[in-house]
Design a protein around this nucleic acid. Structure first.
Lengths: 350, 350
DNA sequence: CTGTTAGCGCTTTCAC
DNA sequence: GTGAAAGCGCTAACAG
C-alpha cells in the first residue's frame, strides 16, 4: 500500500481515478470534464482541471486507443540508410495534423527483407493506424500485399502493385523544369548526365528533359549519359562530354552528387560556371548544393509535402472505410509537383 | 451485427477472443498457449496456434502495455534536421534488444522549444518506456528536468544538468586519435582547422589534439583556426594556413565538411594529398568522405553503438527503479570511444 | 490442465 | 449534471 514519492522521477503516472478522487467527483465526470464534453457544470470542470494540473495528470493514450481503435500513430518503414529522404517525409507526416497529434515510428529495415517483416509485425502489434513505406529510390518496390489490417501508403518509391496507394515526386515534370530553366537562361546546347538507367527516376527525368527540348525545337547534345548517381561519375562523365562537345552550354544532372562532380571537373578544366556552362542538379541535398562553388541550382522534390500527403491518405482511407463508403480511397500512383531552387550554377550572382 | 469481410484489407483485427472461440477454449487458455506458458496441454496449444495462424491473429501490444506498464517503445527527441546523427542512433536503439523488440518514435523538434514540449507531451501520453534526447552538436543542452515519469537519456549532446544521464562521443580521444594517426604517417608539422569555438566539440577535440602533440614533443603549427563547420571555411582557412606556413604536412580538421574544403584548396594550389600534405576529417559523413579526392580519412563517432547504449540505459533505469534498487542507475556523462577510418587522404592508395 | 474472475485506464451509454 | 456499469483486449491470480 505504500505510495511512491509523489512526483518522484519514476513514480507511477497519475491516472484519471486519481484526478477524480482529488476533485471529489466520479471517474466518468472527470473524463467528461477533461475532454471538454459539455454535460459538465463549469464549477466542476474547474475543480477537475485544477486537480489534473496539480498531480500533472497525462491521459493514457493507450487506454484510449483500446477503446476507440485509433492510436494516432503511424509506422514509417524505410531502407533509406542515409535518412536523406525519410527525415523530411517524416516531418511532413508529423505535421499533417498539427504538432503532437500524430507520432511516427521510424523503422529502418536496412534493405533486409527479414528485418522489414519483423518491423512490420512489430508495428501491427503496436496498432499503428497506418504504414508509410519509403523506398530508397523512386523505383517501384515490392508491395507489402493486401492482407494488412491498416492502410499502407508507398511514398517516394511507388509500389509495384498498381492497386496500392503510391505517392511519388513527378520526375518527368522535374526533368522539364530543369530544361525550361536552362532555356530561360539562354542555353541552347544542353546535355544530360544521369544515374543508373535501371532506375525509373533516371528514365522519367530523361523523358521530361527530352519533352522540354522538343517543345523548344531543340535536341539533346549527344546521348544521355547513364552510370551511377555518384560524384565520381559526374566528374568522369562531364570530362568526356566536354571533350566530345566543347560547346555545351548547359548540363542537366540526374542528382546533386553528379552535378557536384561536374562542377569539379569544369573547375579543373578552367570553364566558367555559369558564364560558360550552366549546371543544374536534382534533389536539393543542401549539404551538397549549398557548399559547391558556385551554389547549385537544383530540383527539390518537396518531400515534406509528400509526407504530409501520405499521412493524410492514411487517415482518409481509415475514415472512408469506417464511414458510409462515400469517401472511397482508390489505389494508384499520385505524382506530386516538384520545384526549382535557383542558385549560382545557372545564374551569376548579383 | 453484420460482420465485415474476413481478411478484408481494413477488417477489424482479430482478437484473442476470436482465437479462443475458434479453438474452442477459454480466452485465458488461449493467452497461455500463445505466450508459451507451460500449463497448457500440447494438443490444446496446437489447436490454439493453428486458430491464431488461420485468422492471422496479432496480439494487441497496447492492451498488454496497459497491464504490465511497459510498451516496448522509446521516444527519440531531436533537432537534428539533417538526420545525419539521429539515424544511426535510432538504428542502434532499435537493435539494442533484437529486431522488433523496441520501436522508436522519432520526433523532430526543429530547434523549436514549443514543438519540443508538444512532442514530449505526446510521447508521455503514448506511454513510452523512456526518452532519448539527441542534440544537434555535442554541446550541452538544457535538461528536460526531473519531473518526467520515465527515464531520460541524453545522447550525443549531454545535458547541462550533471545529474542527468548523458552519453556522448569522446571528442578528446578523437582529437588524440587524429594526431596519433598523422604522427604514425610520419607527419610532424601539424595544424588544426576547426569549427565554431563556442562548441564543446571544437574545444574538446582541440584538447585531444594538443595532448597528443605534446606527448610527442611537438607543437601545433600556428594557432588553432576556428570559425564554422563549413566547406567554405575549410577552403578559406587552409588557403590562409598554407600561405603562412607553406611547410605544413598534416591538417586536422574539425569536421568532414571543413576537410573537404581543405582538400579543394590543396588541389587548387597544386599540393599533393597525401604526399605533400595529409588531411584528416571528423564525423565519417560518408557522402562527403567517400566522394572526395582522395577519399577522406576521418574519425567515426560510433553513433550506432551510442544509440544502443542509450536504449540499454533506459531499460536499466526502468529495471533498477522497479527492482530492489540494487541496480541503481546514477547520472553522469559517459564518453564512448571513437574510431579511426582510414582512406586516401592520409595514406597513399596501394 | 482449464476456466472463471478481476482489473489495467479510459470512454460511453444510460439511469438518476 | 452526475455517477454506476459495461467493456476495449489482454494477463494474472485463483479455483476447479
Amino acid at each position: 500500500m505504500a505510495e511512491r514519492e509523489a512526483g518522484g522521477s519514476t513514480g507511477r503516472a497519475a491516472t484519471l481515478s486519481d484526478v477524480a478522487k482529488l476533485a471529489g467527483v466520479s471517474i466518468a465526470t472527470a473524463s467528461k470534464a477533461i475532454n471538454g464534453r459539455d454535460q459538465v457544470a463549469p464549477a466542476t470542470r474547474q475543480r477537475v482541471m485544477a486537480a489534473a494540473e496539480q498531480i500533472s495528470f497525462t491521459p493514457n493514450e493507450l487506454a484510449r486507443g483500446l477503446i476507440n481503435g485509433r492510436t494516432g500513430t503511424v509506422g514509417l518503414l524505410t531502407s533509406d540508410l542515409e535518412g536523406r529522404f525519410v527525415i523530411p517525409i517524416l516531418m511532413g507526416a508529423e505535421d499533417a495534423f498539427g504538432a503532437g497529434q500524430v507520432n511516427v515510428f521510424l523503422c529502418d529495415a536496412r534493405g533486409d527483407a527479414i528485418r522489414e517483416q519483423h518491423h512490420l509485425k512489430a508495428l501491427l502489434t503496436r496498432r499503428v493506424d497506418g504504414i508509410i513505406v519509403v523506398g530508397r529510390q523512386t523505383d517501384p518496390r515490392p508491395s507489402l500485399g493486401h492482407d494488412i489490417p491498416v492502410p499502407v501508403v508507398y511514398a517516394y518509391a511507388p509500389s509495384d502493385d498498381p492497386t496500392d496507394i503510391s505517392i511519388t515526386p513527378d520526375n518527368r515534370a522535374g526533368g522539364r523544369l530543369a530544361v525550361e530553366h536552362l532555356l530561360s537562361c539562354g542555353r541552347r546546347r544542353i546535355a544530360l548526365i544521369s544515374g543508373d538507367p535501371a532506375f525509373a527516376a533516371a528514365q522519367d527525368r530523361a523523358v521530361g528533359v527530352r519533352e522540354a527540348l522538343t517543345d523548344a525545337g531543340l535536341e539533346l547534345v549527344g546521348s544521355p549519359m547513364y552510370s551511377d548517381w555518384s560524384e565520381h561519375w559526374g566528374r568522369d562523365a562531364s570530362a568526356m562530354l566536354l571533350r566530345q562537345y566543347p560547346d555545351v552550354d548547359g548540363i542537366v544532372c540526374g542528382s546533386d552528387q553528379i552535378a557536384r562532380g561536374a562542377l569539379d571537373t569544369l573547375r579543373d578544366l578552367g570553364r566558367d560556371v555559369p558564364g560558360d556552362v550552366a549546371v543544374i542538379g536534382y534533389d536539393n541535398w543542401e549539404i551538397l548544393a549549398t557548399n559547391s562553388r558556385p551554389g547549385l541550382t537544383t530540383i527539390d522534390a518537396n518531400l515534406q509535402q509528400l509526407g504530409r500527403v501520405a499521412a493524410t491518405r492514411i487517415f482518409d482511407a481509415l475514415d472512408g472505410a469506417g464511414g458510409a463508403g462515400s469517401t472511397e480511397v482508390t489505389g494508384g500512383t499520385e505524382h506530386l509537383p516538384v520545384r526549382l531552387v535557383i542558385r549560382g550554377s545557372t545564374i551569376p550572382r548579383r
